[in-house]
Amino acid sequence: MRSLPSWAPRLVERWPPVTPSVDVAAVLADRLGLPAGSCVPVWSARAQARSTVHFLGTADRPGLCRWVVKQPRTNWTQDDVASPLAAAREFAGLLRLAGHFTARGGPARVPTPVALLPELEGFATAYVPGPAVSDLLHTRSVLSPAALLDGVGRAAVFLRGLHELEALPARTLDLAQEAGRVRVRLQQRLAPAGLPVPPAVARTLAAVPSRTVTTCQVWLHGDCTPANVLLPEGRTVVGIDIDLQGTGAPEEDLARFVAFTTGSVPFLVDAVLPERLRLHRPLVGRFLECYGSGVCAPVFELRLLQQLAGRWLRLRQLARLHGRPALLPLRLQTVDAQLQSLLLASARRLARATWT
């Protein structure tokens, strides 16, 4: 069994390998009507928090991955995203999305559905070779951001296509009331960790004027992060791990992607740069430009503030998991400076958007 190739998403390399208790390759071969023994594992199965993933190919070409079998872990819980769907429901959603993107045309798509595998509580799709947007979030992007900006733009194109799945009734909300709810949520999330809501953020939220805005409603990705957008060769962009569990404003998906992207290593330096030179600014601009019209700027910033607060807590948690405890204070200080900088930048944009 081979190791992962250089072009496989690096995130997969960090997932621990597991030994399946069932012959997944045999089950898939039987479902596809292939001879016994013709379907083989290409790389070790990998366990992540929300699912176990198997990479399979054929015995005559053992180095070529053709299928992925995913087994969702429906008992997994997380405070900022819904628990995974059962395999049958996720596969049904994937079939719907595949038909939608095929009819729509363009570069955006989802992995090709292959088969539901009830005996495994999983399903199979065609393998998509290529990196994820998260693979572009490295320090080299600071000096050469072209590839990252292109990947972020392609991710926005995918989200736009996803959000056009079905026209849903629009919803109105009062910005002042929504800002008040966001302020309470930030306090509720940050206070248990001993983190204050930055005073400038609190003041901005308190000053948001009462104004009614209308937001369209869409089927949401549910966990739109840079790791869930793949970039095959050419201009194709592929979204994965879409659950279609809920509807809401498109700004919810947009804000989650931006929070996970800007709250990463290449943007650590933003905390000490003047605002006009901060690296996250062109990235956010490219992302929203490529998504296109219909984004309500105040709603986007309100959703982004909530996502950034969650990202702040998660990054502090990850900092504590690293070795070398003597460096923990420095790690926490770096995370705090970066996320406070992003929160303040979002608050400034919110202030401009609500008073123009």
Rank of each mutant, 00 (worst) to 15 (best):
residue 25 A to M: 01
residue 5 P to I: 01
residue 162 L to F: 15
residue 299 V to R: 09
residue 125 T to I: 09
residue 8 A to M: 02
residue 63 G to D: 15
residue 48 Q to R: 15
residue 113 P to W: 01
residue 192 P to L: 06
residue 346 S to V: 10
residue 132 A to M: 05
residue 217 Q to A: 02
residue 356 T to D: 12
residue 103 A to F: 03
residue 221 H to A: 06
residue 200 A to R: 09
residue 52 T to F: 11
residue 347 A to E: 02
residue 154 R to D: 06
residue 208 V to I: 01
residue 147 A to S: 14
residue 271 A to F: 07
residue 18 V to S: 04
residue 17 P to L: 07
residue 253 D to K: 14
residue 76 W to P: 03
residue 87 A to E: 14
residue 315 L to N: 11
residue 257 F to P: 01
residue 167 A to K: 08
residue 131 P to S: 03
residue 185 R to H: 15
residue 268 L to Y: 12
residue 283 L to C: 12
residue 36 A to Y: 00
residue 136 L to C: 08
residue 288 L to V: 00
residue 54 H to S: 05
residue 268 L to N: 04
residue 70 K to C: 02
residue 315 L to V: 13
residue 202 A to G: 06
residue 232 P to S: 08
residue 317 Q to I: 10
residue 278 R to N: 13
residue 200 A to L: 06
residue 299 V to A: 01
residue 10 R to W: 03
residue 177 Q to D: 15
residue 290 C to W: 11
residue 179 A to K: 09
residue 225 T to M: 07
residue 76 W to H: 10
residue 78 Q to G: 11
residue 353 A to C: 05
residue 213 V to K: 11
residue 141 S to T: 01
residue 114 V to L: 02
residue 342 L to A: 08
residue 133 V to S: 15
residue 161 G to T: 09
residue 239 G to H: 02
residue 18 V to H: 07
residue 97 L to I: 02
residue 282 P to C: 15
residue 314 R to N: 08
residue 117 L to N: 09
residue 229 V to P: 06
residue 239 G to E: 00
residue 204 T to E: 01
residue 236 T to H: 12
residue 321 L to R: 15
residue 171 R to N: 10
residue 234 G to D: 11
residue 294 G to R: 09
residue 279 L to I: 12
residue 226 P to E: 13
residue 196 P to A: 12
residue 2 R to D: 06
residue 116 L to M: 06
residue 173 L to M: 13
residue 280 H to G: 10
residue 70 K to V: 02
residue 210 S to K: 09
residue 189 R to H: 10
residue 313 L to R: 13
residue 88 A to K: 11
residue 155 A to I: 12
residue 215 T to E: 06
residue 212 T to V: 14
residue 107 P to W: 11
residue 260 F to P: 03
residue 68 V to W: 03
residue 257 F to K: 14
residue 247 T to M: 06
